[in-house]
Design a protein around this nucleic acid. Structure first.
Lengths: 362, 362
DNA sequence: AGCGTCCGCGCAACCGATTGCACAAGCGAC
DNA sequence: GTCGCTTGTGCAATCGGTTGCGCGGACGCT
C-alpha cells in the first residue's frame, strides 16, 4: 500500500501526472462540462493514484465560500442540545457542509470567542442555540442572512423585546405550556405551581404562558417557585417548598429540572403522583425511562437542528434571511399526571369553577 | 453602530489605515517583539476600528497549521458520545482549537466521508471514536501522530488483532466487566447472564471479560444472550429469554441496553431486583435517575474526550504518536444488585463453591 | 479553398495572510 | 566622516487552488 507522502500532493502534481495544466485538472475534478472525456479520465486517474486531497483552505480562499457551518450551543452533554446537534450535523453533512461545534456554557465570553472562531474561519452560516448574545451585537459582525437563532435566550427577550421576525427558530413554548396547564386542569388538578430557574428569557416566557393559561381557565394565579440558577444541580430548596406546602400539580421549566425535583421529593413524605401531579418539558429520554414515566411536552429537537440548517442554507443562497419559525410541540402523557378522583379533589378543598369539561386538548 | 461592511476587511485595509505595510501590521497583531510600541498601538487601533477579523483560511494556507481538530463519533444524541464530545470541545477550545464534529452512525461510508472532510480541511489532528475504520486504512491517508482512536470498534479487533500500541484511548472494559461480575458474585448471584448485541469488537471484549471472570470465580460458564444489532430499540427477544428462564443476574453490554431490557421486563412477571439482579455499563445519567437505580460501571467519558485532545496536541507537537492509554472505570452500586439472602440463594438451588469470601473488589 | 463555429484547454491573475531577507535610520566609537 | 551595530519596516515570494479570458485546432458549410 501507498505510504503517507512526505509532502502533501498538490493539484500541480496531479496535473503534471495527467499531462495537463492545473486549470484543466481543477475543472476536470469538478466535472466542468468543458473538459473532454479522455482528459477528465486521465486527471481522475492521476488524482486517485497520487491520493490527492484538495486543500479546502486554498479553495475557499478563492471561492469565498467555505462550506462550513458553525453551531454554538450550551452543552453537548445535555440531551436536548445533543439532539439538536445530531439533527444539525446530519442535515449539514448531507448537504456537504462541515460543522464547527462550540459550547457556550452560558458564558458570554465563551460565546464571543466561539463566534469569533466562526468568523475567522469564514463559516458560511452560523447557528446560535440558547445563546445569550443579543442579535444586535451579532449582526454587527455577521450578515443577518448568515445567522439563525435557535431557542434564543438573550436578556432583552425577557424584557419583552420582540425577537427579530427573521432568522429565529424556536419551539412553541407558549403553546406547550398552555397545553401542559390545560392538561393538568382537565385531569382535575387545580392549584398548580410552576417551578423554573427564575432567570433567563425562556423561563420568563414559559412561566408567563403557564400563568396566563391558568388564569384563563379560572384557577389563577399560578404559584411560582424559583429553583435558582443552579436548581438543576441542587433542587433541594424548591423541593422543600413543594413538600411543606404541596400544590395539586407542578409544571417544571424542563424535564431535567422536573426529574431533579422528583428525585429530591423521594426523600420526603410527598408521593408523586399520589400527592402531586408532575410535568416536565422537552421530552428527553430519561423522562420516558424514569418510573413513574414523566408527563411532558415533546420538543422536536432533532428536527429543529435539521431545520436550522435548511434555513441557513436557503437564506445564504439568495442572501435574504428566512422568516422566523415556531416548531410545534406535542403533549406526552406519562404516569405523573393521572386523572384526579373527584373525591380527592374535594378533599383538597378546592371549588371547581369549571361547569363543563375544559378546553380541548391540543 | 458600525454597519456590516460591504466587503470583508483585509489586513491590507488595516495596514493602510495604520500607515504601515501589511507585513508590519501582521507582525504587530501577533505581538512580534520587533515591532515598536507606537506602531503596534496604531495597528491595533486600526484593526479594532475596522472590525478586522483575520482570515483563517489564508493564514493556515501559509502557516500549514489550521488549529482545527476533527472528531468523528457515532451519534451526538447518545449520552455517552455527548459527554465525550463535550470534554473534547472544552479541551480543544481552551487550547485555541476549533472542532469539526461529524457522526458516523456505524456507517463505513459516512465514516469515510467524514475522514475525507477532515483531510480536505487539513485538520491538525483527528479523533475517531467508536469507529469501524481499520487503523491500517486510516494511516494510509493520515500520519499516525495525527490520529487518536477512542474506544475503537473496528472489525479486526474482534478477531483478536491487537490494537496499535500508540494513539489508542479506551476505557478499561476488561477491568470493568471483571469488577461487575465480581460484584455480582460477591453479592451472592451465581447464574449470571451477559446480554450484548452479539456484534462488534467491544461486545466481544466485554463478553469475554465477563465470561472469564465468572469462570475464574468458579461459576462458569456464563450464559450469553444476543439481543441482536438493534437490541437497543427492540429488546423483546432477549427479554423473553430472560423472562422464560431467569438467571440470578444479568450484566448488560451497556446502560442503554440494560435500561431497554428493564423496560421490557416490566411487562413480564419477572421483578428486578427481586428475581434478577441487573447491571449496566457506562454510567449514563438515565441509569442514575431510573427506579430502581441501575448498578453500573462508570466510564469517565468527559475525561476521555479531554484526554484525546491532549494526546493529539502533544503528539502533533513532536510528531510522535502517544502511547495508548486505558482509562480506569469505577463500580457504581445502585439498587438493582442488592445482596442476595443465603436462603434465596439456596432456594435457587445452586451450590456455592466459594468457601471463603470472594476476590477483593476492585 | 475559405470562413465561421464550437470545443477543449492553458495563461496568468487572484484570494489574504505570513515570513525570509534586505534595507533605512539612529547612534556611539574610532 | 565613516564604520558597525541595533532597531524598526517594507518588499516580494509563497501557500494551493479557482476562474476570466483568449487561443488553437477540428469540423461543417458554401
Amino acid at each position: 500500500m501507498r505510504r503517507q507522502p512526505e509532502r502533501r500532493v498538490r493539484l500541480a502534481d496531479v496535473a503534471r501526472l495527467a499531462g495537463t495544466s492545473e486549470a484543466t485538472a481543477s475543472r476536470a475534478l469538478k466535472d466542468d462540462p468543458r473538459i473532454g472525456e479522455a482528459t477528465r479520465a486521465a486527471v481522475r486517474a492521476a488524482a486517485h493514484k497520487l491520493g490527492y486531497v484538495p486543500n479546502a483552505a486554498a479553495r475557499s480562499l478563492r471561492a469565498k465560500r467555505t462550506h462550513i457551518l458553525g453551531l454554538l450551543l450550551d452543552d453537548l452533554a445535555d440531551p436536548v442540545h445533543g439532539k439538536v446537534a445530531a439533527g444539525f450535523e446530519e442535515a449539514a453533512a448531507s448537504r456537504g457542509y462541515a460543522v464547527f461545534m462550540m459550547t457556550g456554557l452560558h458564558d458570554p465570553d465563551r460565546e464571543q470567542r466561539a463566534l469569533r472562531t466562526f468568523l475567522e474561519h469564514r463559516a458560511d452560516g452560523v447557528v446560535l442555540a440558547s445563546c445569550l448574545s443579543e442579535p444586535s451585537d451579532v449582526f454587527r459582525y455577521v450578515a443577518p442572512e448568515r445567522v439563525v437563532f435557535v431557542q434564543p435566550d438573550y436578556p432583552s427577550l425577557a424584557d419583552g423585546v420582540e425577537p427579530p421576525d427573521h432568522g429565529v427558530l424556536r419551539s412553541d413554548d407558549v403553546g406547550g405550556f398552555s397545553a401542559a396547564v390545560e392538561h393538568l386542569v382537565e385531569r382535575g388538578y387545580r392549584r398548580i405551581a410552576y417551578v423554573g430557574p427564575g432567570i433567563g428569557a425562556s423561563d420568563a416566557v414559559r412561566r408567563a404562558a403557564a400563568a396566563e393559561t391558568l388564569e384563563r381557565l379560572g384557577f389563577g394565579p399560578i404559584r411560582s417557585i424559583d429553583s435558582g440558577p443552579n436548581g438543576w444541580r441542587d433542587p433541594s430548596v424548591a423541593a422543600e417548598q413543594l413538600a411543606s406546602d404541596p400544590p395539586d400539580a407542578v409544571v417544571g421549566y424542563d424535564d431535567k429540572l422536573a426529574m431533579a425535583l422528583l428525585d429530591a421529593l423521594r426523600a420526603t413524605e410527598v408521593d408523586v403522583p399520589g400527592d402531586i401531579g408532575f410535568m416536565g418539558f422537552d421530552g428527553i429520554p430519561a423522562a420516558r425511562q424514569s418510573r413513574p414515566r414523566l408527563t411532558t411536552v415533546d420538543v422536536p429537537s432533532v428536527e429543529i437542528g435539521r431545520r436550522a440548517v435548511e434555513m441557513l442554507v436557503e437564506s445564504t443562497r439568495d442572501g435574504r434571511p428566512r422568516p422566523s419559525e415556531v416548531m410545534p410541540v406535542r403533549l406526552i402523557i406519562g404516569e405523573t399526571t393521572p386523572p384526579v378522583h373527584p373525591a380527592a379533589r374535594a378533599r383538597r378543598g378546592v371549588a371547581d369553577p369549571l361547569a363543563t369539561p375544559g378546553e380541548a386538548r391540543r
